[in-house]
Design a protein around this nucleic acid. Structure first.
Length: 276
DNA sequence: AACTAGTACAACCGCACGCAT
DNA sequence: TATGCGTGCGGTTGTACTAGT
């Protein structure tokens, strides 16, 4: 029997999120934390699938996100980590608190790849392109001479590891590479959001997320369509852009939020959240 | 001003994994 | 052991925006 779809897509909204949806999601998570993503849209009153909510939260709404462009240092670190870990963006992102795997992946594909090509490095292997072409030619010659199938040795996954700051690489085993994944940062704290609410709110600058320094109109407008935002008055818009989430959260009528307790089928699981 | 190509990034899709039953 | 579920991950796509002509 095949796998069921993650959610019933009929009647669910797709595409860019509106401010209203963002507010509902943030509101819900800050008040209840995250227990089951599949239930989040239902309980938060969103016509989205849980997966979409999770992505929106992790990649855009999470309070501890660091917005703005990558620094040279960060780019160098990404290159080094990519040479060790390959396209394992979540592992790479774990070394950059406040950055998401999606963000790093996008930055890699749009900027760093090109930058590396310009400097003569292959973005996949981190080996100088000339050297790689020579290697390919050598391998082809070898194969033609041997006329045999590749040995199992050739199927072993290798990781290119920078041996020094110059960007030269060396080969290490995957096991060795994994051992070097130190200081891994996880986002498990998210699950304790109700308890961390104060800290999050105090650290948060919602205005800067709505109006990131890099490209003010781009990021905010891409999160909701003009059509969606057109119903907002000027005062609404400036409110959204200039006030912190703290103020916004304060302005919420908590009683109007759908409570977990109101969701009978979940009664047993809801004990997880304790009494609010 | 209008059009086009390029860029950046949010969002989606499908698969894999871990866990519970 | 097999199956189903929930979630995480990486690849890809869609689209708003910008720069160039």
């Amino acid at each position: 029997m095949g796998r069921q779809p993650c959610c019933d897509k009929i009647g669910l909204k797709r595409g860019p999120w509106t401010i209203e949806e963002d507010h509902k999601l943030i509101n819900f998570i800050l008040n209840n934390g995250i227990h089951c993503w599949r239930m989040v849209p239902k309980l938060a009153g969103l016509l989205r699938c849980g997966k979409s909510c999770r992505l929106r939260w992790i990649n855009y709404l999470r309070p501890d996100l660091k917005r703005g462009g990558f620094t040279e240092t960060e780019e160098d670190q990404i290159i080094q980590l990519h040479s060790r870990l390959g396209n394992r963006w979540s592992k790479i992102a774990a070394h950059f608190p406040g950055r998401t795997d999606n963000e790093i992946k996008n930055h890699w594909n749009t900027r760093i790849k090109k930058k590396m090509k310009l400097t003569g490095l292959d973005p996949v292997t981190h080996v100088p392109i000339e050297q790689m072409q020579k290697q390919i030619t050598d391998d082809d010659n070898k194969r033609q001479r041997n006329q045999t199938r590749p040995s199992s040795e050739e199927n072993v996954e290798i990781i290119m590891k920078p041996s020094d700051s110059s960007g030269c690489t060396q080969v290490v085993s995957e096991e060795q590479g994994n051992k070097e994944e130190l200081n891994k940062v996880t986002w498990d704290d998210t699950y304790d959001l109700p308890n961390k609410n104060d800290k999050i709110c105090s650290d948060l600058d919602f205005g800067s997320r709505m109006n990131p320094d890099k490209n003010t109109s781009t990021t905010s407008s891409s999160s909701f369509s003009l059509e969606d935002s057109s119903h907002l008055s000027m005062s609404d818009s400036s409110y959204l852009q200039e006030n912190s989430l703290m103020e916004w959260v304060d302005s919420i009528n908590i009683e109007s939020i759908l409570q977990w307790d109101a969701f009978d089928p979940l009664d047993q699981d809801l004990s997880y959240f304790g009494n609010r």
